[in-house]
Computed example of a mutant assay.
Amino acid sequence: MKQAPDGFVRLRDVDSSILEDVRYATPHNFTGDPVPGYDEPMCVLTRPLAEALHRAQQQLVPEGYSLKVYDCYRPQQADDRFVEWAQNDDHRMKDEFYPGLAKSELYSAGYIAENSGHSRGSSVDLTLVRLPAAPQRPYVPGEPLHPCTDPVGERFPDNGVDMGTGFDCFDDRAHTDDPRITGEARANRDVLRDAMTSVGLQGYSGEWWHFNLPDEPFPGEYFDFPVNSAAFR
Rank of each mutant, 00 (worst) to 15 (best):
L128H: 11
R81W: 09
D162M: 13
A113T: 08
P132K: 15
F170K: 01
E96P: 01
P157T: 01
D150W: 04
L101Q: 13
R137A: 15
E105R: 11
A78I: 04
V124W: 00
R130L: 13
L126V: 07
E154N: 05
A133F: 11
H118F: 00
A86K: 14
L145V: 13
V69C: 05
K68C: 12
Q57R: 09
Y70H: 12
D172H: 07
M163H: 03
P62I: 11
Q77R: 02
M163Q: 07
H91Q: 14
D79R: 06
F97Q: 01
I112E: 03
S104C: 10
P135Q: 06
V152F: 13
H91V: 14
S123A: 13
V69I: 11
Y111E: 00
F167P: 01
D171F: 01
P62S: 08
D71F: 09
K94Q: 14
N159R: 15
V129C: 04
P141L: 09
P132D: 14
R92S: 15
E84D: 08
I112P: 00
L60Q: 14
S108P: 04
K103Q: 15
Q57T: 14
D172L: 13
P132I: 15
Y111T: 02
T127K: 07
P62Q: 09
T149P: 01
A109D: 04
E96F: 06
V61T: 11
F82E: 10
S122W: 08
L128S: 12
C169D: 04
Q77N: 02
H118A: 03
G166Q: 03
P144D: 14
P141W: 12
P147A: 11
M93N: 07
S119W: 00
Q136D: 07
G164T: 02
P147K: 09
